[in-house]
Amino acid sequence: MKAAVVVFPGSNCDEDCFHALRDVAGAEVRYFWHKEKNLPKCDLLVLPGGFSYGDYLRTGAIARFAPAMEAVARHAREGRPVIGICNGFQILLEAGLLPGAMLRNQSLSFICDHVFLRTETAKSPFTNRLEKGRVLGLPIAHGEGNYFCSPDTLRRLQDEDRIAFRYSSTDGRLGDEFNPNGSVDHIAGILNEGRNVLGLMPHPERAGESVLGSEDGKKIWESLMA
């Protein structure tokens, strides 16, 4: 598999993603600088976490206009997988490649923690090595991960099986006490209509090796490699 990690000024999980893809997943990886326009054909695009453009205006609002984003949109339109992690998820929302928007965490605090998510669908290139209901332990680190969308959009996400992950207890129960940021319907990750674009707040790239405390993130890379 050939993968590219998009790098914006202020990205800070780009090297982690690069490492996870090359050393954990065994993919061929390159960086794709935000000013580049021509993306050599690749199978997977990763929008990493960080604070692109200092989070000015709104998280992801400026990154959306980067020249590289045209290549990202084209790649997505062609049906090839794009994964946006944390700030990458925020950028995909601002770019309109996923529906909804991010609000400040309900607590107003930046949360750096280890959380649990329940896999809600195995029907995507990112989750085909998981089964519905499977709980993953992954780290989160964000100030604006409080996912919001209109009631109509939420109904569509539910009806079309496009909620990929929900925050849960270790044994897969849902509840406000397991929802770190106040996200609507405990949403941690969603898919686009074509199911080839995934945005999620937790960091699978930081949980792919036992030395990091969890290998659960590997499942997402394994699904993509399958």
Binding site: A61, E94, P99, A101, L103, F148, S150
Partner: peptide, 8 residues
């Protein structure tokens, strides 16, 4: 185009 995110 930029200053406002009409979703929120």
């Amino acid at each position: 185009k930029l200053l406002v995110n009409p979703v929120i």
